[in-house]
Design a protein around this nucleic acid. Structure first.
Length: 570
RNA sequence: CGGGGCGUAGCGCAGCCUGGUUAGCGCGCCUGCCUUGGGAGCAGGAGGUCGGAGGUUCGAAUCCUCCCGCCCCGACCA
């Protein structure tokens, strides 16, 4: 590509809308331009990066034995009614009517369509196992799109679906995808972790997320420093508390706590520590109030709560909702004699003689005991894990870190094949439900994540496998025939050697070209200038470490393509 | 949807509080000269429904009302 003919509009200044590094750099380097909230045009250079990721994903999916197909984006509502998700999916599913008033939606994911294909085309155990995938633009009407390509409403996703004869066979398919995903993210040059995850709205029984480690990540993950354990905090199970303290249960007492509503204020006033107090949080679980008990210094993990209650949505209730449901102002709520459902974190059940709200303004209770003074409907793991908790697997020390979810794999089981009646005949002639798995990669998000992980103050530093151009060739002597001839020749020769090369033949000053080369993040920069006229040498500089060498154009040709090929191998 | 913030030239911003006649600055863009190894310099030039609608006023970018859009924090998720 000749820079003089390319639409790669770089910006010196950062548009005000961008907050995170990848978004800022993608705007500055001319990757993307926003059309409206969460919806972007992929400009030529940005699209080239996306294509690089797509190709890696495609190669690894094919290597794992999956087959590519392409499903429709516009889907009939009736299909979604069959799976029960038309009602369940929520407002992320963009619904609309076509000209014949037929209800339709834009595909946020494709379990329904692929299951429809499966029930029509897969009839025998002989057709199985099979794994079908596509790389496609998805639309999810996110509540709050943000961070550029990190969370857009339109985004490029690879989604794959496996079909098996049994749970055991599905486990094999799942493992294959797990391995394929590891290879994909390694080849993309990303630092990542596979973590145990909640299976969320897609449904299913077992799942892993692939997290790129980066401070701007929207997820928090726990990693064990001693063993292989790693999990999303939403999922990270906390070990049950073994033995309850053998302290004697004391008599229940009411104490005055005028104006003290927050845990810290109550503790300070009563001269106690937060771990002697139990807070009562009211949640709306699918619209119905539930009181959730956790120790004063703990946080409720809403995903665990949601799973325990088996509801689609939980939301912390507002002051008014709390008062309407219980007749008690927030801050003084407690489980003793409360009228709404109560669930307790397992830790609460093991505590003795603790403090809770008195269910009366300006009052708390002391010497409260679970089982004696109140009986929760469930006692379960409901709080968020912390670094002071032991590893659920080995008891070792945990670390917390932020991650960007770039892949998610699920064992779906037979949920969809049952609701949509997708069957096959087994060896013994018995009709059975297909056992499914589904596997997603956020292709456009990978580009954003890669930039989050690979940049400096001057711009992007592309890993070679993702770089739209691996070499940028700077002609610093446009007026000088000798320099220009050498640049043109090297440009052709590098292209012939299969290198993605960008020739900067723009009539700009050297500093300008250097800045753009850095901003674009091209891994290798070859500069032809004065030194070529003097002694026939060009400069080769690596973007990542700034290592610079002088050599003849023929040496460039002899060494660079091989070097690049080595980086691509992995 | 709840909370916070912002809409003035392609981009980044000032002006608004305290209304006043041709609405400024930097970058970018166009023309010319000059310059050529880290976003040069000089000269000239183009480019604006001040987000939209209504109102107050002799007069509105500025004050008031409503609407729209965008960004940030939360719930959602590849």
């Amino acid at each position: 590509m000749r820079y003089s003919q390319a639409l790669m509009p770089t910006l010196k200044e950062t548009p005000a809308e961008a907050e995170v590094v990848s978004h800022r750099l993608m705007l500055r380097a001319g990757f993307i331009r926003k059309l409206t909230a969460g919806i972007y045009t992929y400009m030529p250079y940005g699209l080239a990066a996306i294509r690089k990721v797509e190709n890696i994903v495609r190669e690894e999916m094919n290597r794992a034995g999956a087959q590519e197909l392409l499903m429709p984006m516009v889907q009939p509502a009736d299909l979604w009614r069959e799976s029960g998700r038309y009602e369940k999916y929520g407002p992320e599913l963009l619904r609309f009517h076509d000209r014949h008033e037929r209800e339709s939606c834009l595909g946020p994911t494709h379990e329904e369509v692929i299951t429809d294909i499966a029930r029509k085309e897969l009839h025998s155990y002989r057709d199985l196992p099979i794994n079908l995938y596509q790389i496609q633009t998805k639309f999810r009407d996110e509540i709050r799109p943000r961070f550029g390509l990190m969370r857009g409403r339109e985004f490029v996703m690879k989604d794959a679906y496996s079909f098996d004869v049994s749970d055991e066979a599905a486990q094999v398919s799942y493992k294959k995808m797990y391995e394929a995903y590891r290879r994909i993210f390694i080849r993309c040059g990303l630092k990542f972790r596979a973590v145990q995850a909640d299976s969320g709205a897609i449904g299913g029984s077992f799942s892993h997320e692939f997290m790129v480690l980066a401070a701007t990540g929207e997820d928090t993950i726990v990693i064990c420093t001693a063993c292989e354990y790693a999990a999303n905090v939403e999922k990270a199970a906390i070990k049950p508390v073994e033995n309850r303290s053998d302290e004697l249960e004391k008599d229940l007492e009411k104490v005055e706590t005028p104006g003290k509503r927050k845990v810290t204020a109550v503790c300070e006033f009563l001269g106690i520590e937060p771990d002697q107090l139990v807070k009562t949080m009211v949640y709306q679980a699918d619209g119905k109030p539930v009181a959730v008990l956790v120790r004063g210094d703990r946080e409720v993990e809403e995903v665990k709560l949601k799973n325990l209650l088996g509801v689609a949505d939980v939301e912390l209730a507002g002051d008014k909702e709390v008062f309407d449901a219980t007749g008690v102002p927030t801050g003084y709520l407690g489980p003793v004699g409360i009228s709404i459902r109560v669930v307790a974190d397992q830790e609460v059940a093991a505590m003795k003689n603790f403090y809770v709200g008195g269910n009366e303004k300006n009052h708390h209770m002391k010497n409260v005991n679970c089982g004696r003074d109140f009986q929760p409907e469930h006692i379960a793991d409901l709080r968020q894990i912390t670094v002071s908790d032991p590893c659920p697997d080995c008891g070792g020390t945990l670390e917390l870190t932020e991650g960007i979810e770039v892949g998610h794999i699920f064992k779906l089981g037979t949920g969809y094949s049952e609701s949509m009646n997708a069957m096959f005949s087994d060896k013994d002639g018995v009709e059975k439900h297909l056992v499914m798995g589904c596997y997603g990669v956020g292709v456009s998000r990978i580009v954003a994540a890669a930039i989050e992980q690979n940049h400096d103050e001057n711009g992007i530093i592309f890993p070679v496998p993702l770089a739209p151009f691996t070499v940028i060739l700077l002609n610093l002597g446009l007026q000088d025939k000798e320099i220009t001839d050498a640049a043109e020749m090297l440009y052709r020769e590098l292209q012939d050697a299969g290198v993605d090369v960008l020739l900067d033949d723009r009539d700009e000053r050297p500093g300008f070209k250097f800045k753009d080369a850095d901003l674009l993040g091209v891994p290798f920069r070859v500069t032809i200038g004065k030194n070529f006229v003097k002694n026939g040498l060009v400069e080769v500089r690596q973007r990542r470490d700034g290592v610079t060498e002088e050599m003849s154009p023929s040496d460039v040709l002899a060494s660079l393509p091989a070097k690049i090929a080595a980086e691509l191998k992995n």
